[in-house]
Computed example of a mutant assay.
Amino acid sequence: MELIVYLAGEIHSNWRQEIKEKAQALQLPVKFVGPMENHERSDHIGEEILGTQPNAIFKDEAASKINNLRTTVLMQKADLVIALFGEKYKQWNTAMDASTAVALNKPLILIRPEALHHPLKELSNKANVTVETVNQALKVLSYIFEEENK
């Protein structure tokens, strides 16, 4: 059995690569998908496809529609969502993706530092599991594949 795991969260740090490498080292049968990690491409995809927009607002709207389509398709195909909230970046997209996972009844592992417990308490309560680190999330993911005879 292979699971498709949607990795929701900021695209500025290497947390996705860390999860992918550690999952591979553990030989977990998972395929990872997620948002476009190339920030420039994500910001400009609307104009690449639809042509030059009249201003920055229309440019953002065009890109958002295409990025939201990508997220919808990949998240609907996912078996599980892992959403990371870090302390450094604004987390609007992470909150939206985690909420979408809840609305789609997708199993959700929420990663957030203890410092963000209070602002994320309601979302954390809706998640299946809330952890503080990538390593803890991987342990949860590994447990899905653990056999009883261990």
Rank of each mutant, 00 (worst) to 15 (best):
A8R: 05
L84H: 14
F32H: 07
L50Y: 15
T71K: 09
K121D: 12
W15F: 12
T100A: 08
I49N: 00
I144A: 10
S142R: 14
A101D: 06
K31R: 15
I82A: 00
E47G: 14
L120Q: 08
A63C: 00
N14P: 05
L74W: 11
A63T: 01
W15I: 02
T71W: 05
E2P: 02
T71M: 10
A103G: 07
E10L: 01
K77Q: 13
D43Q: 13
H44L: 15
G34H: 02
L3T: 04
K150R: 09
H117C: 06
D43E: 15
L50K: 13
A115W: 05
A83V: 03
I19R: 04
L84F: 06
T52M: 12
N125E: 08
L116K: 14
A83N: 06
G86S: 14
L116M: 13
V73S: 12
E10P: 12
A8E: 09
N68T: 04
G86H: 04
L26F: 10
P29E: 02
N149Q: 10
W92C: 05
G46V: 05
A25Q: 11
R70L: 12
F85H: 12
G9F: 05
D97I: 00
L69Y: 01
E2A: 07
K77S: 01
K31M: 04
K121I: 11
M96D: 09
Q17N: 06
V5S: 04
L3S: 10
M75L: 11
I109W: 09
R70S: 01
L7P: 00
A95G: 08
A25F: 00
A127T: 15
K90R: 09
V131T: 01
L7I: 01
L120F: 10
T130M: 03
D43F: 13
D97C: 06
K88E: 15
K20N: 03
F58Q: 15
H118D: 15
R16W: 06
E18R: 05
G86T: 12
I57M: 01
L50W: 10
H44Q: 14
L69F: 07
